[in-house]
Amino acid sequence: MSVYAIFIRERTRNAGELETYAEMVTPLLGNSGATVLAAYGAQDVLEGPSPEGVVMVSFPTMETARTFYDSPEYQAAVRHRFLGADYRSIIVQGVDG
């Protein structure tokens, strides 16, 4: 059953740090078995405040998503995201369809 990692950017604080994060994370995602489903595209916000951007990534299992997130390589990259912007990040299990 697929799981989805959702990253919601609320407010940018340092665009340079986000660029560094993007440069570091792109090859990591490519090697992880993940599939990027959406990345900062147009939004039609139905409820609540509009985020600056949303990224949604599919992983085969919860374990592979957590292994990716907790890996030393991603943790080295994610510190730049933390410095660059305020985000909410969620991993959610999909449903059997």
Rank of each mutant, 00 (worst) to 15 (best):
residue 51 P to L: 03
residue 52 E to W: 09
residue 35 T to A: 15
residue 27 P to T: 01
residue 88 R to D: 06
residue 1 M to F: 08
residue 74 Y to G: 00
residue 59 F to P: 01
residue 14 N to C: 14
residue 29 L to G: 03
residue 58 S to I: 00
residue 17 E to F: 00
residue 81 R to G: 01
residue 85 A to D: 00
residue 51 P to H: 05
residue 64 T to V: 12
residue 14 N to Y: 00
residue 81 R to L: 02
residue 43 Q to K: 14
residue 25 V to R: 01
residue 97 G to M: 01
residue 47 E to C: 10
residue 13 R to L: 13
residue 72 P to K: 07
residue 67 T to H: 00
residue 96 D to T: 01
residue 95 V to T: 13
residue 44 D to H: 05
residue 97 G to T: 01
residue 58 S to R: 15
residue 74 Y to S: 05
residue 96 D to V: 13
residue 15 A to T: 13
residue 52 E to M: 13
residue 40 Y to G: 08
residue 51 P to A: 15
residue 41 G to Y: 04
residue 86 D to W: 07
residue 67 T to N: 14
residue 35 T to G: 08
residue 17 E to Q: 09
residue 52 E to S: 14
residue 86 D to I: 10
residue 52 E to G: 07
residue 3 V to F: 02
residue 93 Q to I: 11
residue 56 M to C: 04
residue 75 Q to W: 08
residue 22 A to P: 00
residue 6 I to V: 04
residue 75 Q to I: 08
residue 16 G to M: 09
residue 33 G to W: 02
residue 35 T to V: 13
residue 6 I to Y: 06
residue 1 M to H: 03
residue 46 L to E: 12
residue 36 V to F: 08
residue 22 A to I: 05
residue 22 A to C: 09
residue 79 R to M: 14
residue 77 A to S: 05
residue 40 Y to H: 05
residue 21 Y to P: 04
residue 26 T to C: 10
residue 44 D to I: 11
residue 82 F to K: 10
residue 26 T to H: 08
residue 51 P to N: 08
residue 39 A to C: 06
residue 56 M to A: 13
residue 78 V to D: 01
residue 39 A to T: 03
residue 57 V to P: 02
residue 60 P to E: 15
residue 91 I to W: 11
residue 87 Y to N: 09
residue 21 Y to G: 02
residue 37 L to A: 12
residue 59 F to A: 00
residue 91 I to R: 03
residue 68 F to P: 01
residue 3 V to L: 00
residue 78 V to C: 11
residue 12 T to M: 02
residue 27 P to A: 10
residue 67 T to G: 14
residue 14 N to S: 15
residue 66 R to Y: 00
residue 10 E to Q: 15
residue 93 Q to E: 15
residue 37 L to F: 03
residue 83 L to W: 08
residue 97 G to S: 01
residue 81 R to V: 02
residue 39 A to P: 03
residue 68 F to Q: 01
residue 19 E to T: 15
residue 83 L to F: 07
residue 46 L to P: 08
residue 53 G to N: 06
residue 86 D to Q: 08
residue 9 R to H: 07
residue 46 L to S: 14
residue 96 D to W: 00
residue 60 P to S: 03
residue 11 R to Q: 15
residue 72 P to V: 14
residue 94 G to H: 03
residue 68 F to M: 06
residue 6 I to T: 14
residue 22 A to Y: 06
residue 77 A to V: 15
residue 15 A to N: 12
residue 20 T to C: 04
residue 26 T to E: 13
residue 87 Y to S: 13
residue 86 D to K: 14
residue 77 A to N: 04
residue 5 A to I: 03
residue 45 V to R: 13
residue 64 T to I: 12
residue 80 H to W: 01
residue 94 G to S: 11
residue 71 S to E: 05
residue 34 A to C: 07
residue 37 L to V: 11
residue 18 L to D: 11
residue 16 G to I: 01
residue 29 L to H: 03
residue 53 G to T: 02
residue 32 S to T: 00
residue 28 L to E: 13
residue 75 Q to R: 15
residue 25 V to I: 02
residue 80 H to V: 05
residue 45 V to K: 12
residue 81 R to I: 02
residue 54 V to H: 10
residue 18 L to T: 03
residue 85 A to K: 10
residue 66 R to G: 04
residue 85 A to T: 07
residue 47 E to A: 15
residue 27 P to D: 02
residue 19 E to S: 15
